[in-house]
Design a protein around this nucleic acid. Structure first.
Lengths: 255, 255
DNA sequence: ACAAACTATTTACACCGTACATAAATTACA
DNA sequence: TGTAATTTATGTACGGTGTAAATAGTTTGT
């Protein structure tokens, strides 16, 4: 599979599935299962065994229908993945506790941390591209909560959207490395540190004279955090980004 | 395929392949092709037809060997993908022109823009996770160039590494949306704007009362850039991040 | 000359997504 | 109340995937 581009499917059909707005009284036999059962089963498989384990046959079997009956509920696998995305976005609906007491910086930090944890809990989300932005109810509600972090602090609507989207983009980029570590460790039992140690003899045979800065930096970072520390990069990048946000916000409030 | 975790493979074997350090005089028959031919063919297929078109059989056929002969050159498909990554990183070896005349901010901007363009040129790179950091010659040389952007400006080695890694993470997160747009458009002929227009009737039936901020923001951003403008988010986030970097650098230089 | 080491190929297996044809069930309408 | 329309459910089949295993052929070192 891999690419997950539906393309030929009707975009409105997907939205109807997401929002549960199918026609009320239908003619044929009652469906054996509900769409939510199928999506839930698919998410359970992905969470516990990874995205590779999610096949249409496997999902059908999990809910007790024949392989091809899957397609009476979902146009194609691409749509299933979109539905899975909105399904797991459900916890994002609720604003974090103490939301009212926080300033924008604390709020953006909480949002970023929540997304970080989310992707580590559902790393399969990072393993595919959607064909379009997911406009499901849970996704939309999560966006509302995130936007509220930067509401009423002097930014215009465009800046609010850009701020939240840029923040999310950064989290996605940073968490990929952490998710990769976790995923590979669970699949193989070998951590990045184990790997780092196993290749050290080879690495030491490399001629570093063309890479003097890397050699200097790599020696020190290697001692500090081996092949890398994704969470530290996340913390670092987040602080820089928020410092930059502060400058912009201060400038806007002064004007 | 999808996940691309080799796991069982010897990590050192992969490094030997990347650095071309296999044993010199081997016993059996001469190989019919070179490893570089295989990797080059795979990249050509991925660039022109997407990652899905890259199958072991297809690559083997492209270089003129039988399907299973592929595995005499590469332990498994996961290793092929790692090799492809380092292969396309080759242009990153050279520092951009006028490098010497730029300050750190201009340099980091150039690095970020080069990465942005790189991912748009090889969007398939974003479609899979590597099992480990790629320690190939081209990747390493690119890292050297990137590090040189922040060398000698008062940062310690840890901060240099974190700065470059965070910058790259942000670019990856931001470019994913642009790559998705491009990819889907090429695959289906439907742009995000077309899609946005096609679902508008449905979107207008949604009750937005639970999402007041989204409604306010979405109305304005929708008129400004429809469902989204990835490059604008990239520019915005980059400026905020660099503003934050400036604060840190100024603080370090003062101390 | 011969054994060891290596490359190359063929066959085969268990999967995948899904097109297509068909049967069974339910409702709407005559 | 029949009967036609519509929908769900299923079975079969096709062309694709990665790669394990067995086998044959080629080159080199002894």
């Amino acid at each position: 599979m891999t690419s997950e581009i539906s393309g030929r499917g009707d975009p409105v059909k997907l939205l109807e599935l997401m929002w549960g707005k199918e026609g009320q009284k239908r003619r044929g036999p009652k469906p054996k299962v509900a769409l939510a059962d199928i999506v839930g089963a698919a998410v359970a498989i992905a969470d516990s065994e990874g995205l590779d384990a999610v096949s249409t046959r496997r999902v059908a079997e999990a809910v007790g229908i024949s392989p091809m009956s899957f397609y009476t509920y979902v146009p194609s696998k691409a749509e299933l993945l979109d539905l899975m995305l909105d399904h797991v976005a459900e916890p994002g609906r609720a604003a974090p506790p103490d939301w009212a007491d926080m300033d924008w910086r604390a709020r953006m930090t909480v949002i970023a941390e929540a997304m970080w944890a989310f992707y580590l809990q559902h790393p399969w989300v990072l393993q595919f591209q959607t064909h379009r932005p997911v406009l499901g109810p849970n996704t939309l509600a999560s966006y509302e909560v995130a936007l509220s972090a930067v509401d009423g602090i002097g930014l215009d609507e465009i800046e609010m959207d850009l701020s939240i989207t840029a923040l999310m983009d950064f989290v996605v980029g940073a968490v990929r490395n952490a998710a990769r570590q976790k995923f590979v460790f669970e699949a193989t039992g070998m951590s990045d540190d184990d790997w780092w140690y196993s290749i050290l003899p080879f690495v030491e045979t490399i001629d570093y004279s063309p890479y003097p800065i890397s050699e200097r930096v790599g020696t020190i970072t290697g001692e500090e955090y081996g092949p890398g520390d994704p969470e530290r990069v996340f913390r670092f990048g987040l602080e820089r980004f928020l410092d930059g946000m502060a400058i912009m916000i201060a400038r806007k409030q002064k004007a």
